[in-house]
Nucleic acid binder design. Structure first.
Length: 157
DNA sequence: GCCAACGTTGGC
DNA sequence: GCCAACGTTGGC
């Protein structure tokens, strides 16, 4: 079982959007980067856990935990000319883009801001913190996962 | 295959 | 709004 960090702009899709769905389930779509596509299609497994990260917003940071509940499946937004994510080079017979089913496990009471992650020496190797990192899904080590979960549980100023 | 131009991401 | 850092595109 693996750990991940998955970014989303809250103005597009936030943890509250996921939380308010009926069974707190959703499909993580819109991935249009080959490296991330390969992770989704070939590496992610049901049962993996992922941090939900809000990017491009006032306070970027980790806002909760999701479980991956499916293997990679074709991203049907790529087939829809009306969709912002439409890609004419993808089609149902040969899908180019994939997504996964996700389920909300926990929404944190407080965001763990990016700045707090940067301040934590135990997290300094996270790809998320590397300058120029543009991958919307990155792996998280077991140790990093524990450190972050522990940080969420302990009281903060 | 090279590489310049362009587009996107995302923090600040 | 700025800008760094990348990814993608397309001419050659």
């Amino acid at each position: 079982m693996a750990y991940w960090l998955m970014k989303s702009e809250p103005s597009t899709y936030s943890i509250d959007d996921l939380a308010k769905t009926k069974q707190q389930k959703g499909f993580w779509d819109g991935i249009r980067n080959y490296q991330v596509r390969n992770l989704i299609r070939d590496v992610m497994q049901p049962g993996d856990l992922a941090f939900f990260y809000h990017s491009s917003c006032k306070v970027p940071g980790i806002v909760g935990i999701m479980e991956i509940t499916s293997r990679g499946k074709p991203d049907e937004t790529a087939f829809d000319p009306e969709s912002h994510y439409f890609d004419s080079k993808s089609n149902p017979l040969s899908p180019r883009w994939f997504g996964v089913d996700v389920k909300l496990v926990e929404k944190f009471n407080d965001i763990i801001p990016l700045a707090a992650l940067r301040d934590n020496n135990a997290l300094k190797n996270m790809p998320l913190l590397r300058t120029g990192n543009r991958l919307s899904i990155t792996p998280v080590t077991g140790k990093e996962w524990q450190v972050i979960v522990k940080a969420e549980k302990s009281p903060r100023p």
